[in-house]
Write a protein that binds this DNA or RNA. Structure first.
Length: 574
RNA sequence: GUCCUGGUAGCUCAGCUGGAUAGAGCAACGCCCUUCUAAGGCGUCGGUCAAGCGUUCGAAUCGCUUCCGGGACACCA
């Protein structure tokens, strides 16, 4: 258990012994460091409930505190300030050097399916997909760290109108192909298309269909036929999906995203009949389609019904999401399902989630949660585009960053090593920048700023670690231990590290990584200050030297673990 | 039009389950390399927290109103 949580439990006992029955006591970093490292503000809430004077409540609490604290003092109307005594700090961190897990607190184990990624088959990945991938992967790893059983599903957009689009385009290229012959009985041939070809075909078909109603109807018909199981079309489409998946997989691998399940919308088909059966009592016809009301009496905002079956009898994305939910519950029996998509889909997900509970598709004890994220904008504040106004695909985005990064690698590093370092740094830069703002915040994409060697950037973090690793490699002693806390800069770093348990807990509650990234920066920045002002290897006092090295190792290990959560790789030199 | 979001330093963003004097980074200016990677560190400058009203011991944080930006509102995902 973390020192902070352990202490909070102790404090809660103290308060309860005084006769105050409250739920928790929070120990938070002091906003006035001159009074102590931590503060307790509980006296105010207690005073309110028990109609007492906050200052006298504080005095009673303080009188009962044991000697684990030093410098206990009451300021203002009842703020308690205090610090831990040195022995507590030393003992705790000396244990933490080899046991990262005592720095934070595990949560009750739950099984959680994380739905993220969501790339569309046959379309290239763009900026928006990156956020889902980065945030989803990191949250998944965070959940695992906190003791959850997690299953990540890429939930590929492998069905929908794009299927009909591509097939209609293929029909124009190969009108006599056996895929379109309903009487064909033999083996279907392998198509010779690359993902690049698909990338050209899709926009072509899309433009044509939007201009021509007949073409659009053809697209709809083809889409419906695939869903109904037309052998030739289904085979053709599956081949296209497979071609596309290969390149999608490569991009996700570049981003360090690894999915336990590589499934998609088509995997929901087999559950749709049962979904419709379960929902039947709640469905009614509206303008030819079947819909489900999801309003509640308590609503103070309009809530449109969810469409479940289109007027041509085909499924829509909502149907497939419901099918996916049913499938997940049947196969995995999860406690929760977490979705990471663009914030713009939040109304839609609210509808799906409400419909799931209302119709009994999902029991109340299973939690469905949608976590939206903000959009990535250009410097003009509008969604990030290429110079000629097209949507920026992910591969180009990565090269934009790499261009900046390459300027900043030492000249001595050359050849394939240089290339490898540039790749790792580029992804690290992109990911760090992507997860730095609060999840729901829209942010402006600025490669120069993100790749800068100063500030809250991937390069700053990795560079700091490179220095620590180099330092530890050069060290001539190996039994590191925190012995001497007389150096204020050492203590500052350690006190900051204590916050990690709260940081991880908050990150979990808000499903955002920005707290972790801020924390990484804060720790490294305090450490770098210490590093700059002390020559560690030349330190003559052995106790101090051991302490300094122990601190360095501790900092390295903590940041290393946190980067693993963020799915950011390190480099050995740069 | 209705609803959802957001408005914090010149710029980019934290802080929002109410706590003491609102924080970082960048930019600007000044300082620190015979020193473990100076690709770093230190300092200075910079704010009517969009505006107003309210709730209370206490409001950037909660509520209401107004102004401005972004988004969503069924046969696309």
């Amino acid at each position: 258990m973390s020192l902070i949580k352990d202490t909070e439990e102790y404090l809660l006992n103290v308060v309860k012994e005084l006769g105050y029955d409250i739920e928790k006591v929070e120990l938070v970093p002091s906003s006035r460091k001159e009074f102590g490292d931590f503060q307790i503000n509980s006296a105010f809430s207690i005073a309110k409930i028990y109609h007492e004077n906050p200052k006298s409540v504080s005095e009673k609490i303080v009188a009962k505190l044991d000697n684990r604290f030093i410098n206990v003092n009451i300021q203002g109307a009842g703020f308690i300030n205090l610090s831990f005594n040195d022995d507590i700090i030393k003992d705790y961190f000396n244990r933490a050097i080899d046991h990262f897990d005592i720095l934070y607190d595990k949560l009750d184990k739950k099984k959680i399916i994380v739905d993220y990624g969501g790339a569309n088959a046959a379309k290239s990945l763009h900026v928006g997909h990156m956020r889902s991938a980065n945030i989803g992967e990191a949250v998944k790893r965070l959940l695992k760290l906190l003791g959850m059983e997690v299953i990540g599903d890429v939930h590929l957009g492998d069905f929908g109108r794009q299927a009909g689009m591509l097939i209609s385009e293929y029909k124009r290229m190969e009108p006599d192909s056996v895929f379109f012959d309903p009487n064909y009985q033999g083996e279907y041939p392998k198509i010779k298309l690359t993902d690049k070809d698909l990338g050209i075909m899709y926009p072509k078909a899309s433009i044509a269909a939007n201009e021509d109603e007949d073409r659009m109807n053809e697209v709809r018909e083809l889409t419906l036929k695939i869903e109904k199981g037309d052998k030739g079309l289904l085979n053709l489409w599956n081949q296209m999906v497979e071609i596309s998946s290969k390149s999608i997989k490569k991009v996700y691998e570049k981003l360090n995203c690894h999915f336990e399940l590589w499934e998609g919308e088509m995997d929901s088909f087999k559950y749709i009949p049962e979904v419709l059966e379960i929902m039947k009592p709640y469905l009614y016809e509206s303008e030819g389609a079947l819909v489900c009301d999801v309003e509640k009496e308590t609503d103070n905002k309009p809530m449109p019904p969810l469409m479940v079956v289109k007027k041509d009898g085909s499924s829509i994305y909502g149907t497939r999401d419901l099918g996916t939910i049913l499938g997940r519950i049947k196969r995995f029996n999860p406690d929760e399902i977490w979705y990471f998509t663009d914030e713009r889909q939040s109304l839609y997900f609210e509808q799906v989630i409400r419909a799931s509970y209302k119709t009994g598709l999902v029991n109340d004890n299973v939690k469905l949660k949608h976590f939206g994220f903000g959009t990535i904008n250009g410097t003009d504040g509008k969604p990030f585009k290429t110079r000629d106004g097209k949507v920026m695909d992910l591969a180009s985005l990565i090269s934009l960053i790499k261009e900046e990064i390459e300027k900043n690698i030492k000249e001595e590093i050359t050849g394939s090593e240089r290339e490898e370092i540039a790749d790792i740094l580029s992804i690290a830069t992109l990911k760090y920048a992507d997860m730095l703002p609060f999840r729901k915040t829209d942010y402006i994409f600025n490669p120069k700023e993100f790749a800068s060697l100063n500030g809250k950037t991937g390069p700053y973090v990795l560079y700091s670690l490179v220095r620590i690793k180099s330092l530890l490699n050069k060290s001539d002693i190996d039994n590191y231990q925190i012995i001497d806390l007389s150096n204020k800069e050492v203590l500052d770093v350690l006190i900051k590290i204590l916050e990690i348990s709260k940081i991880l807990e908050r990150s979990y509650l808000d499903a955002t990584l920005n707290y972790i990234e801020e924390f990484i920066y804060d720790v490294l920045s305090l450490y770098n200050k210490f590093y700059n002002n002390n020559n560690i290897l030349k330190e003559e006092d052995l106790n101090k030297k051991k302490t300094y090295l122990a601190l360095s190792k501790l900092v390295y290990q903590i940041i290393h673990e946190l980067l693993k959560v963020l799915a950011i790789d390190e480099v050995e030199k740069m």
